[in-house]
């Protein structure tokens, strides 16, 4: 029998010191604490070690195009659930979750823009949305901007980041690889430049289609770029992977990409390349 009862002390909700979230960011490479304004000013690149943080499509577009020149196309196009995919999580629910979480409708933004005064077609993938996986919408939007660029006789620039094809749309996703590559075939046949920019990470069906078909292929430093996932390869190879395997630096060494370009220099290099490949 208890004589004394422990007094219950309640102070309502637990008090917490109020630090707005995301004010400071820790660099995953050098552990430097960086203020978000400093990071933004530096194009989301760590000022100390030059680690490239990921960028949303919107942010990336603003770092590349002439101010205010981007005119978005097909911004309302959205995914349906053509297979009525039932798994652990239904596709419809996943789409809704990601739309809410990111404020995006789909994983790529496409449109016309000017870069250094040159009109271009531009497609920028946004990894936040379902790992920017390639499904019907991503494939269709990219195909349309390529076709539009062929018709307008302008270069196309695609900035890739993707986990690969979108499982939830089955073989429909697979065929987007053929569809986008086919549109590039016609763009190429018309002797128009395609500049492909690979960012972290670009894998699977995106690497095995439009991403590596550029006349010029550029990559951001240390981006992971490959076909199969490293875990799968390690399991099959029964050995450790070579150092730097599937990084942009590794692929430069092995002859796949033309140049590694830090984010801060990307716009200027694009302008130079455009000035050399496009007759004015």
């Amino acid at each position: 029998m208890t004589i004394f009862r422990r007094p219950s002390l309640k102070f309502g909700a637990k008090r917490k010191r109020e630090i707005p979230e995301g004010l400071w960011k820790k660099c995953p490479q050098c552990s430097e604490m960086i203020h978000h304004l400093a990071l933004e000013e530096n194009l989301n690149v760590c000022p100390k070690c030059e680690h490239h943080f990921s960028l949303s499509a919107k942010e990336r577009i603003s770092t590349i195009v002439d101010e205010g020149s981007f005119i978005e196309m097909d911004s309302e196009m959205s995914s349906v659930d053509p297979l009525e995919f039932q798994g652990v999580a239904a596709y419809k629910e996943r789409l809704e979750t990601y739309q809410k979480k990111t404020g995006l409708i789909e994983a790529v933004r496409t449109g016309n823009a000017m870069i250094g005064g040159y009109p271009v077609g531009l497609a920028v993938m946004d990894f936040q949305f379902l790992a920017a996986s390639l499904g019907s919408v991503v494939g269709e939007k990219i195909t349309r901007i390529i076709e539009e660029s062929t018709a307008a006789r302008q270069p196309i620039i695609i900035i890739s980041a993707s986990g690969g094809a979108r499982m939830y749309e089955g073989a429909l996703s697979l065929m987007q690889m053929a569809k986008t590559s086919g549109a590039l075939a016609r763009h190429s046949e018309a002797r128009l430049p395609f500049i492909s920019i690979l960012t972290h990470p670009t894998m699977g069906g995106v690497t095995a289609s439009f991403a590596v078909l550029g006349d010029v292929i550029l990559a951001e430093p240390k981006s992971m770029i490959g076909f199969a996932g490293p875990r799968v390869i390690r399991e099959i190879a029964h050995q450790d992977l070579p150092e730097g395997f599937q990084t942009a630096e590794f692929l430069l060494e092995h002859g796949l990409i033309d140049e590694i370009v830090p984010r801060a220099q990307m716009r200027n290099i694009l302008i130079t390349i455009l000035s050399l490949l496009v007759e004015k």
Binding site: T207, I233, H254
Partner: peptide, 26 residues
């Protein structure tokens, strides 16, 4: 599936597939 191996990646299996997708279309 295409082979997910070290040599396959070093010699750019993804590129070899992508080029075929483009070239077969024409």
């Amino acid at each position: 599936g295409a082979y997910p191996g070290i040599g396959a990646e070093e010699r750019h299996i993804a590129e070899s597939i992508a080029v075929n997708l483009r070239e077969m279309m024409l």
